[in-house]
């Protein structure tokens, strides 16, 4: 691999953008393909499949063997609300391999004492997203119960295409939320993507159990997205 290609690849990875390093196995020559690059032909289709599935592998094309090393950003969780559930969710998410950030403008909740060793922002989600935007590799869990805090990030997550969007609250609370989002211009199709009540139905009662249910639902969303893409590429 050329030093330039390595630097360019690492820059994409640091910025949380998907990229594929294509290596010609015959002579070691390489090129970096970024997500969003115009891809055409049979080789282009193979690249597009690789972006969707996240699977690296060798492709026979144009009379040669090419290794596609797919670099997708590591999955991340943004939890809105420095609440009791988030206190349990933060360490669990780290153990499961997720980067997690807790956002809550209420400074009494968002304290380092309550969230040791956790990326924490005692600010409005609107302001945090300007610096660290949501992306397709981010799961968003809205956990404050407070529409003033939760509604904006939910709308932003749906618009961005976050791989998971979940919101805490009863069916009744969620019905009101859907009405507010509709008024804010969110389509029914988009708001239908919100997991609410949040978490897999495991009868979770305590905050820690709810955190397990939320994390399990996030893992399911991440893996089913991958599995769907792999099945698709096998069928093709």
């Amino acid at each position: 691999m050329r030093a330039e290609a390595l630097r360019a690849l690492n820059a994409e990875r640091r910025a949380r953008r998907a990229a594929i390093l294509v290596t010609d196995l015959a002579d070691g020559s390489d090129r970096l393909v970024r997500e969003g690059d115009v891809l055409s032909g049979q080789f282009g289709e193979a690249l597009q499949r690789a972006f969707r599935s996240g699977k690296s592998g060798t492709v026979e094309a144009e009379g040669g063997s090419f290794f596609l090393n797919v670099h997708l950003p590591p999955p991340r969780i943004v939890a809105i609300g420095a609440v009791h559930i988030s206190q349990a969710l933060a360490p669990m998410a780290r153990i499961a391999g997720f980067d997690i950030e807790i956002i809550d403008p209420r400074t009494a909740f968002a304290t380092p004492e309550r969230f040791p060793e956790t990326r924490l922002a005692a600010e409005w989600p609107e302001d945090v997203f300007k610096r660290r935007p949501l992306d397709a590799y981010t799961a968003l869990a809205a956990l404050t119960h407070d529409p003033k805090i939760d509604d904006f990030p939910l709308k932003a997550a749906l618009e961005t295409g976050c791989f998971y969007v979940g919101a805490l609250g009863s069916r009744k609370t969620h019905a009101k939320r859907l009405a507010r989002l509709a008024e804010a211009g969110v389509t029914d199709e988009a708001s239908g993507r919100i997991h609410a009540p949040i978490g897999l139905d495991i009868g979770a009662a305590s905050p820690a159990e709810i955190a397990v249910a939320v994390l399990a639902q996030i893992v399911a969303a991440l893996r089913s997205r991958g599995l769907a893409a792999v099945t698709e590429s096998r069928a093709a």
Binding site: A3, L6, R7, L9, N10, R13, R14, A15, R16, P73, P74, R76, D99, R131, R132
Partner: peptide, 22 residues
């Protein structure tokens, strides 16, 4: 720029390689 990606500077072989090349 802030590292957004949760890449581990101390263990990620491609980040280490970039420093070794430097």
């Amino acid at each position: 720029m802030e590292n957004l990606s949760a890449l581990d500077d101390r263990r990620d072989p491609l980040l280490i390689a970039e420093r070794w090349i430097k």
